[in-house]
Amino acid sequence: MNMKKIIALYRSAETGKTSTLNLLIELLDKNKKVEEERLIEDRRVSISYGSKKIAVTTWGDNGFELKENIKFFEKENCDILVTATRTRGETTEILNDYAKEIDTDIIWIEKNISAKLEELINQSQAKDINAIIDTLI
């Protein structure tokens, strides 16, 4: 029985996916604090969380980045991949193909956006993804 899981945070470019996933990294690992001015920097990290190993990859705006995210997930031998992706096109096709290859479903989460409430929305959505991860472990 395959235990690998994929969570995809999707939306078009410049909608806060990277910031939300960086906040998620902080929630999952209190030792990986991100300074506010660095929230927009892309990263690939693996985190031991509960009994699982989780890969959080903030890149995802093109096919090359998404393929690198998958390689990282496999190399780190993680149980759960949380990645950014676009709304449609090459990145979603690559992720769908990979999910079929490893025989798992993707939990698709649309990135919430609001210019006035961006910070609060990013924090709230990071907590929502953390709660989903908690149900998977």
Rank of each mutant, 00 (worst) to 15 (best):
M3H: 15
K5H: 10
K5N: 12
K5F: 11
I7R: 02
I7S: 03
L9V: 03
Y10S: 04
Y10A: 00
E14K: 13
E14D: 15
G16M: 08
K17C: 01
K17Q: 02
T18Y: 07
S19A: 15
N22W: 11
N22S: 04
N22A: 03
I25M: 05
E26R: 02
L27T: 01
D29G: 01
D29H: 04
K30I: 14
N31H: 05
E35Y: 13
R38A: 13
I40L: 11
E41A: 11
E41K: 15
E41T: 09
D42V: 10
R43W: 07
V45L: 03
V45I: 05
S46K: 06
S46A: 06
S46Q: 12
Y49P: 03
S51L: 00
S51M: 00
K52C: 07
K52H: 09
K52Y: 06
K53T: 06
A55E: 00
V56R: 00
T57W: 01
T58C: 03
G60D: 01
D61C: 10
D61R: 08
G63A: 06
F64S: 08
F64A: 09
K67I: 09
E68N: 14
E68T: 11
N69Y: 00
I70K: 09
I70P: 10
K71T: 12
K71L: 09
F73D: 09
F73T: 11
E74M: 12
E76T: 02
E76Y: 08
N77G: 03
N77C: 05
C78M: 05
D79Q: 06
I80C: 07
L81C: 09
V82R: 01
T83Y: 04
T83A: 08
T85C: 14
R86Y: 05
R88D: 13
R88Y: 13
T91S: 05
T92P: 02
T92C: 13
I94A: 09
L95W: 02
D97Y: 08
D97I: 04
D97R: 03
Y98N: 11
K100H: 08
E101V: 09
E101K: 05
I102M: 03
D105W: 06
I106A: 02
I106G: 01
I107D: 03
I107T: 10
W108R: 00
K111R: 08
K111V: 06
S114P: 05
A115K: 15
L117K: 15
E118H: 12
E119K: 08
L120E: 15
I121V: 07
I121W: 01
S124Y: 12
A126K: 03
A126D: 03
A126Q: 05
K127H: 09
D128A: 15
I129G: 01
N130V: 07
A131M: 09
I133D: 11
D134Y: 05
I137Y: 12
I137R: 15
